[in-house]
Design a protein around this nucleic acid. Structure first.
Lengths: 215, 215
DNA sequence: TAGATTGTTAATCGATTAACAATC
DNA sequence: TAGATTGTTAATCGATTAACAATC
């Protein structure tokens, strides 16, 4: 659990919303100087109360009768999300998803730096994608230690995911972004985020079907 | 809102969990014949109560003193998620993410069929990726109508996303899977799912930083 | 000053867990 | 039958919204 000011515990849902606030303040910057919780809520599709309560976990950023200073808030959120710090990451699994993430430039814009790629396919080892070298997974543990890797992206097949995660964690990685279609067995409180693409597509299928039924 | 048996409304959180149940029943099939809510909860990392309540929105699938028949439940979930029906989709935006999704074979395994790709870059038009042709976005509206496209994946840059969504919806698409880093302006109750990769990475950054602080 | 808008507490709403009668 | 386990209702927990004093 993550404590905020006043010893309050920051709910997980609030943490998940933080990057969204950051995105909106990025867009607002340059357009307006200040914004009220009311207006921001309208733009983001949430309530003014939620905006104020969410932000209040991290500080008193507003000013009565004025609202929030856009430039200042964007900077505060950048600090909260550690955007100015370089966070080094690697990708395990150079399949379609892995390759795409290698070339995905938005990572760089958010302060993430790709240091290496890992796979088991012999024919890939030694190659480079976007000037990032592919190594054999057996070298991953040492690589993490030597290069002080912060984050591991897992895009290997489902059955290999847990072993990869285990190696990463044992080697001192600080967090995992998991694209494999399974829940990983990590220690309680180990930082992890899951991106289950097919799950999202299937939930969408359900929504579509359910909507058609009600017609 | 989506009604279930007994006129209960199915909470959105339950819908989002459905694909996860399906995944686990897929894995269990062949391994065991039956499973109790207790055991399933242990494997999935949720409570037995939640398993039973979640499933109860869709039917009485269990048997007292026995549990749930794995093969049967997997089939029920497949039907609930419409997996046996072919759902046709297109991808707007042939950047890194779009390309990766084009080659992502898990879509096919879940019953999704990619029918076309769309972009504005003239040099891409007419090319094919994985035997799927790239068209100009100006042709998208007609393509959707003529080919009865169910789902649109949006992987265009942020500023183009809303216009693409508008065209899709106007042309009768039934649902959108959005990878663009923005919330789309869709009608209330229009089926949509968002996959915000950078948001997830940034939330992970926060978790890592917060954990380090407490040490 | 008057109006606007914050940060926070209280009230409400929704989701999860516990309890248990029903029954295989 | 006895033990196991369901489906559902009630109790609890957590998240969202409403209300408002404080104050720019």
């Amino acid at each position: 659990m993550y404590k905020a000011r006043n010893n309050r515990i920051i709910p997980k849902v609030v943490i998940e919303r933080l990057p969204r606030y950051y995105r909106y303040f990025q867009i607002l910057e340059g357009k307006v100087d200040k914004i009220s919780s009311q207006k921001l809520g309208e733009i983001m599709g949430s309530s003014a109360s939620q905006v104020r309560l969410d932000l209040s976990y991290f500080g008193e950023f507003g000013l009565q009768g004025y609202g929030y200073n856009v430039k200042k808030l964007k900077e505060e959120l950048a600090n909260i999300l550690d955007i100015h710090k370089e966070r080094r990451f690697i990708i395990a699994g150079v399949g379609n998803i892995g390759r795409a993430l290698t070339r995905y430039d938005a990572f760089e814009g958010a302060g993430f730096k790709l240091m290496g790629l890992f796979d088991i396919k012999e024919e890939l080892i030694g190659q480079s994608i976007n000037n990032v070298k592919i190594y054999h997974v057996s070298e991953m543990g040492n690589f993490i230690k030597e290069n002080k890797i912060d984050i591991g992206i897992i895009s290997v097949p489902r059955d290999a995911a847990n072993e990869v995660a285990k190696t990463m964690i044992k080697s001192g990685i600080k967090g995992i972004l998991n694209f494999a279609p399974t829940e990983l067995d990590v220690p309680e409180d180990f930082p992890i985020e899951n991106i289950h693409i097919i799950d999202k597509a299937l939930a969408l299928s359900f929504l579509i079907k359910a909507k058609e039924k009600t017609k």
